[in-house]
């Protein structure tokens, strides 16, 4: 296999993403966790772009960084004092969880390096965005409408729960 500049970019992006992911779970300060999380989201967006899914990369930045991360930061700030590193950030099963995580990664890595994936050597479609738009209102029209229902139910539910009475 030839090692190109693209591989270097990929390794840098992947390393950045995993580093930020680790930062999220080990940081003692919850606000710093949120900042690491934003970094991880940006890294995942870059990975999407490397997979030539431009639209998804931007949707990731828009929804995860622009919306979900903001929500998380708001929630952190709304709950006073919970972002200052208290004595314990982890619960009693932290050690076991770490072992489970490492074992899971080893298992997954072992499996997916064994499997011979049926990779197709082909360029992506030239213009995926209209294809997606079309799929939303034809092939995937039921999930599309179910998502609309889900979103409005989530909106109603969350307002009901979070409102100050």
């Amino acid at each position: 296999m030839e090692f190109t500049f693209l591989h270097v970019i990929f390794l840098a992006v992947a390393g950045f993403t995993l580093l930020c992911g680790l930062g999220v779970v080990v940081s003692r300060n919850l606000f710093h966790s949120a900042i690491w999380l934003i970094g991880a989201f940006a890294g995942v967006a870059a990975i999407y772009w490397l997979l030539e899914a431009e639209y998804l990369a931007i949707a990731q930045i828009m929804i995860y960084i622009g919306a979900i991360a903001t929500l998380i930061v708001f929630a952190i700030m709304l709950s006073r004092g919970m972002m200052i590193g208290r004595a314990k950030m982890n619960n009693f099963q932290a050690g076991i969880s770490a072992v489970v995580g490492i074992l899971l990664f080893a298992l997954l890595a072992f499996i997916l390096l064994q499997v011979e994936w049926p990779v197709v050597q082909q360029a992506v479609v030239a213009d995926p965005i209209p294809m997606m738009g079309q799929a939303f209102v034809t092939t995937y029209v039921i999930p599309f409408q179910v998502i609309a229902v889900l979103l409005s139910v989530a909106l109603v539910g969350a307002i009901m729960i979070a409102r100050e009475r």
Partner: peptide
């Protein structure tokens, strides 16, 4: 190809920056 959505997504970065500065 995602031009305008990219523009909207970037303004999210500014709001994170403002929130970060404030905190």
């Amino acid at each position: 190809s995602v031009g305008l959505l990219y523009f909207i997504a970037m303004s999210g970065i500014a709001s994170i920056g403002a929130l970060m500065a404030g905190w």
